[in-house]
Design a protein around this nucleic acid. Structure first.
Length: 856
RNA sequence: GCCGGCAUGGUGAAAUGGUAAACACAGCGGACUUAAAAUCCGCUGCUCCGAAAGGGGCUUGUGGGUUCGAGUCCCACUGCCGGUACCA
């Protein structure tokens, strides 16, 4: 807070000046296909940040972490001759804005645009090299238009099982399919389904969102409602398989794979009276051990199969489950509950009568909502069977001497008729063949992934471009897009599950007989495709032009379109899965030329408070970037964020650390200038003459080499330490040769753009022959390998792996010479002592290890 | 429970299987200053021997293994962080 602290260099004066210049001159504007100044011969580099949700709280220090990393890489690539696409925008729809609007009574459009202003101001104050001409805002009508257009692509498509691709439903129309048949296969479809309804917010939530809002104190319950769904489950296989070609952290890939949850198994039919219960199992080989069955309490067959004596108990149990929230169901994990329906089914392999129960440990939403219970080889079934005293029959012999009760790993089939003696994998294959042959079941792949609940009962979101007439839905024509929300005064939730838009009676009325859909899309809709729009943000004819798509997204020849995407882990499944899904649909329909959106993904690590705790208002450990900029400058903020540690690591903030990098920047400044009464004048150490200091020249070129490599690896902390070493070398040198100093400035420019540009511009007043362009517009410096050459090298000598001495040899010395020199060193002779030299290992340029055997 | 990730000085950290602790922070000493701040220079893993100059030993969560050589690779364990949770 010591704002009166004397500034070690005048960042407060020059940083805003450069920011204004970059803004006015559009220094970081990126021409694209169709622009007059576009150079198609340059390679493209698309480096993307996860665009922020512009909350009222403004930027926190977590935002600039990833943003600085991408900015450094983007600036370096630009200097290295790439066309760099590095844009920024706003994920501005969504529940928090609307909740805030309801609380304060202000229209979300007003609060959102104020928040966007503030975020943009903060980002510009950090000096990011974004192309602000490409800024997108998901709430912008010109953007909403194309979000709705993409929704219509989904609406007008189905998933062709044969080709495993999305195809237009018009193909089905041509084949004479009925409206009902087509509506049943659309990728965007309507379903009456039990959903997560929040009475406190008056909206439905996606499964994935429930936890988040519950933690914020909202209530959520299950309730059947008519909803728009997106058929993401059809893409389960591809979403899972095609992760393999991407350069993502393995952990994130695994997280997505587990979320998609592909498992192989079989459907098996169990007959009872006139009904058939179909179950899904991943262990059909244990079918002989199925001693009872369990249906989910909500299973539609329950009322039909329940016997009169059990009716009361079953209905009471169903009632109890329905009112239980998911959370309560989870809390009761340890204790299994359930009731017998009175019905018995026939086990198809051995014709045994087995009881049918209902229990809430079986979920309606997964598989068929019914299971065959094999208590001997499933922990849950075992627990249930023990509690209700149901029979337990061993059908798998464990590999070792483990107890067979509760043994779930592969083993050998026993007590299983024709499967006896087969290992689990073979038994699975054989029983499935047998079931398929007899028509009793079939092979099946099941996903944990559910279809995506896509409608919200909210005001602040994209309306669906859909109207209803005589109970049927249909798309409005593309020419009517964008369809904006009506300007409601009162957008509070009504408690009516159709949402607040029902209050706009004029807006709802589409024609005499047709009404608009009153649901809106979730926040994900806009964020699913924003990275596409950046490529061609002003296009009024298409969501992205063919040319821009081909250049920015298709040019790399790899499956992923964006070269690097940096953001937090919190989006590991939801956003990243949804965006991949939309991308694949648009790819299938021929609108995109890559099957995946993001080739390389990097997750920046969380920044903790100074106390090592997660930053939070209540702990009072939140660091505001505005304060850091005010006290130390934007370059110090940028540099510290990168110097803290590896990008992907969780790490605590330290103001002392900020001071440290600020001191470093001040040292760079003072290399160039000395303070006098009249201000800063050029340091007399700076000389416009060839560098005669070989050691200094070597450090400079080592720095170019290391910084170049480290930027490629996103290892910014080590790049900075090398630049510190270089600066320290300049500080202790008697002469600072201008050319070499500018090389350091070029390396440092992507990290500390204001400081380096200011030094460069001021030096040019004294040395007019210097390159007149801004550093960020000059080519990246090249390491001169000859400058790295040394005359002598120091070699470590070990005896039996222990460091005993160091020798100095000419850099071109042969292994034989090195060995001779090592063995001649007095300390080595002493260490060898009376032993015999068995072997000498030489690592060229580095080390000698003498292996000595003691004499017996 | 299951699945991931991490573990190195007082602190943030560095180290293609090859000198562990680079670069910083903090600390200590010195120069400059009337003084302080700022700046500059030096020291700074632990430990033992020595008055000193020097020298020895130990050290990357724990225990084993592979290797001439392991912070790095393999096995087992412990602790912390993140994800997930009756997914049949």
């Amino acid at each position: 807070m010591s704002s009166d602290r004397r500034k070690p260099f005048p960042f407060d004066e020059f940083e805003p000046r450069w920011q204004v210049l970059w803004d006015l001159e559009k220094t970081f504007r990126t021409p694209g296909p169709g622009d007059a100044d576009f150079d198609a011969s340059k390679p493209k580099f698309y480096v993307l940040d996860m665009f922020p949700y512009p909350s009222g709280a403004g930027l926190h220090v977590g935002h600039p972490e990833g943003y600085t990393a991408t900015d450094i890489l983007g600036r370096a690539r630009r200097m290295q001759g790439y066309n760099v696409l590095h844009p920024m925008g706003w994920d501005a729809f969504g529940l928090p804005a609307e909740q805030y609007a309801i609380k304060t009574g202000q229209h979300p459009r007003v609060t959102t645009s104020a928040n966007v202003e503030n975020f943009r101001r903060q980002l510009k104050a950090i000096g990011f090299g974004y192309d602000w001409d490409r800024e997108v805002n998901t709430t912008d009508p010109a953007y909403v238009r194309w979000t709705q257009w993409i929704f219509l692509q989904l609406y007008h498509s189905y998933f062709c099982e044969e080709t495993q691709k999305a195809r237009p439903v018009s193909e089905l129309e041509a084949k004479g399919w009925t409206r009902e048949q087509i509506d049943a296969v659309r990728l965007a479809f309507v379903q009456e389904a039990p959903v997560n309804w929040s009475p406190s917010m008056g909206t439905v939530l996606a499964n994935e969102e429930v936890e988040e809002w519950r933690n914020k104190g909202e209530t959520v319950e299950r309730r059947p409602l008519r909803q728009w769904m997106l058929r993401i489950t059809k893409y389960g296989q591809r979403l899972s398989d095609e992760l393999d070609g991407l350069d993502w952290p393995e952990g994130i890939k695994l997280l997505q794979k587990n979320w998609i949850g592909r498992s192989e198994g079989a459907e098996v039919n169990f007959e009872l009276d006139v009904h058939t219960i179909t179950v899904f199992t991943t262990r059909p080989d244990t079918l002989f051990g199925a001693t009872y069955m369990v249906l989910a309490p909500e299973h539609p067959l329950v009322p039909q199969i329940t016997k009169a004596e059990q009716k009361a108990a079953v209905e009471a149990y169903q009632q109890a489950c329905a009112t239980k929230s998911d959370m309560e169901r989870g809390d009761l994990n340890k204790d299994k509950t359930g009731v017998f329906t009175g019905a018995y089914a026939i086990n198809p392999v051995n014709s045994e009568r087995i009881p049918v129960w209902i229990a809430d440990y079986v979920m309606m939403g997964y598989g068929t909502g019914a299971i065959m219970a094999v208590p001997a080889h499933d922990e849950r079934d075992l627990e249930f069977a023990r509690k209700f005293e149901l029979p337990i029959v061993q059908v798998v012999q464990p590999a070792g001497d483990d107890d067979w009760r509760g043994y779930t790993d592969p083993g050998m089939s026993v007590n299983s008729g024709f499967l006896n003696g087969l290992p689990t994998a073979e038994a699975k294959a054989k029983i499935i063949d047998w079931l398929e042959e007899k028509g009793l079941g079939k092979r099946r792949i099941q996903f944990k992934l559910r279809d995506w609940l896509f409608s919200r009962q909210r005001y602040w979101g994209e309306p669906f471009p859909i109207v209803w007439e005589n109970g049927n839905h249909r798309a409005i024509p593309e020419s009517e897009l964008p369809l904006l929300q009506p300007d409601l005064e009162d957008f509070k939730p009504t408690g009516d599950p159709r949402g607040p838009l029902i209050k706009a009676t004029d807006w709802i009325r589409y024609s005499e007989t047709a009404q608009r859909e009153t649901n809106t899309m979730p926040q994900w809709a806009g964020s699913c495709w924003y990275y596409l729009r950046y490529c061609d943000p002003k296009n009024t004819e298409r969501f992205i032009s063919k040319e821009a798509e081909a250049y920015w997204l298709g040019g790399s020849g790899r499956p992923g379109a964006v070269d690097l995407y940096v953001g937090g882990t919190e989006h590991a499944v939801l956003h990243l899965l949804y965006a991949r899904f939309w991308h694949k649909v648009l790819f299938d329909l021929g609108h995109l030329s890559t099957p995946e959106p993001f080739q390389r993904l990097v997750n920046q690590g969380l920044i903790l408070g100074e106390d090592g705790q997660k930053m939070s208002k209540s702990l009072g450990n939140v660091v505001n970037p505005d304060d850091v900029i005010h006290n130390y400058g934007a370059d110090s903020l940028r540099l510290y964020e990168m110097f803290m540690g590896p990008l992907e690591q969780v790490k605590p903030w330290s103001m002392k650390g900020v001071e440290g990098v600020s001191r470093f920047l001040a040292r760079v400044w003072r290399l160039a200038f000395t303070e006098t009464e009249t201000g800063w004048t050029v340091n007399t150490k700076i000389l416009h003459a060839p560098c005669t200091d070989k050691a200094l020249r070597r450090v400079v070129h080592e720095t170019i080499k290391k910084v170049t490599e480290d930027i490629d690896r996103l290892s910014f902390n080590t790049a900075i330490s090398q630049m510190m070493i270089c600066t320290n070398a300049f500080t202790s040198a008697h002469v600072v040769p201008l050319e070499e100093f500018v090389m350091l400035l070029l390396c440092l420019n992507p990290f500390a753009p204001h400081l380096t540009e200011e030094i460069h511009a001021r030096l040019r007043e004294s040395f007019p022959s210097m390159n007149a362009r801004q550093l960020c517009q000059q080519p990246w410096p090249v390491c001169d390998a000859s400058a790295l050459v040394v005359d002598e090298i120091s070699i470590v000598v070990q005896v039996n792996g222990k460091l005993r001495d160091k020798i100095t040899v000419p850099s071109g010395a042969s292994n034989a010479d090195i060995e001779a020199a090592a063995l001649a060193a007095p300390k080595i002779i002493e260490a060898i002592g009376a032993g015999t030299v068995a072997k000498v290992i030489i690592v060229p340029g580095k080390l000698v290890n003498v292996v000595v055997k003691p004499n017996a």
